[in-house]
């Protein structure tokens, strides 16, 4: 119970701070955010866009870890955990795409530019979609669990190419791309102290929210499967 209250307080804090704190040219008081050239008022969406993209990746990692665990132990509960992680990951992946697309419209002029990071989030969406398509095509619990586990592991080994290699060898608009003159992500050099605090609080809050959703999700799914078996 205590951590639910903690999450509520944290989430409220992040929402209020992220939306209402003013962006000014010369920060004076503790709640003033600095003006980042090129981002201006758009900078605030970073508190919501980055955590969703981060969670989309974390969810995929969890799905892969539980897939490996399933292949080792052959416990169907692990498959349910991987599946639930992928379901929630899909939601956050869509959210990250939408928030990023809106941000791109105002910062770079169009909704979609095929920047390397946009390409990789698109590939992540496709992987999630393919995973669900595969699951719906296979009959039989164990076969479905094995095939989707194998597929999510194979898809996961391509992730380093998207996250670490593509953005660095291709030209892009996100910070940290091959032709970026600033060198390094926005977080390190452009945000001031209070902005960083809100940013990391937001990351923590969203991560806790994700684990809570995942926990409720897989437990209800396991109960549902059990009831289904009793009825049949």
């Amino acid at each position: 119970m205590a951590w639910k209250v903690f999450l509520f307080v944290l989430m409220t804090l992040v929402c209020i701070a992220g939306i209402t704190f003013p962006i000014v040219r010369e920060p004076v008081t503790w709640y003033d955010f600095p003006l980042i050239p090129g981002l201006e008022e758009n900078a605030k969406i970073i508190f919501f866009h980055v955590p969703t993209a981060w969670l989309a990746t974390i969810a995929f990692l969890m799905a892969t870890l539980y897939s490996i665990k399933y292949l080792r132990k052959k416990d169907l509960d692990d498959d349910v955990k991987a599946y639930t992680a992928a379901q929630i990951g899909m939601i956050f992946c869509v959210l990250a795409t939408v928030t990023g697309s809106v941000w791109a419209k105002f910062a770079w002029g169009s909704f979609w530019n095929w920047d390397p990071r946009e390409t990789s989030i698109f590939a992540l969406l496709l992987i999630y979609g393919a995973l669900f398509a595969l699951r719906s095509a296979v009959d039989g619990d164990e076969k479905r669990a094995t095939l989707s586990s194998v597929y999510s592991i194979i898809a996961f080994v391509t992730v380093p190419f998207f996250i670490f290699i593509m953005p660095r060898i291709m030209k892009g608009l996100h910070p940290g791309s091959a032709d970026d003159t600033n060198a390094g992500p926005v977080v390190d050099f452009k945000m001031n102290q209070n902005m960083q605090v809100v940013f990391y609080l937001s990351l923590i809050a969203f991560t806790i929210l994700y684990f809570w959703m995942w926990n409720v999700g897989y437990r209800s799914q396991i109960i549902k499967d059990k009831l289904q078996k009793q009825i049949n």
Binding site: A123, L126, A133, L134, A137, L147, T158, F162
Partner: peptide, 23 residues
Amino acid sequence: AIISKAGSKGTLYPVLAFPILLP
């Protein structure tokens, strides 16, 4: 190999292969 064990064979193949082949 995955496709041969799954039910619907033809249409699923490009769907599964494209994200893997994209990089």
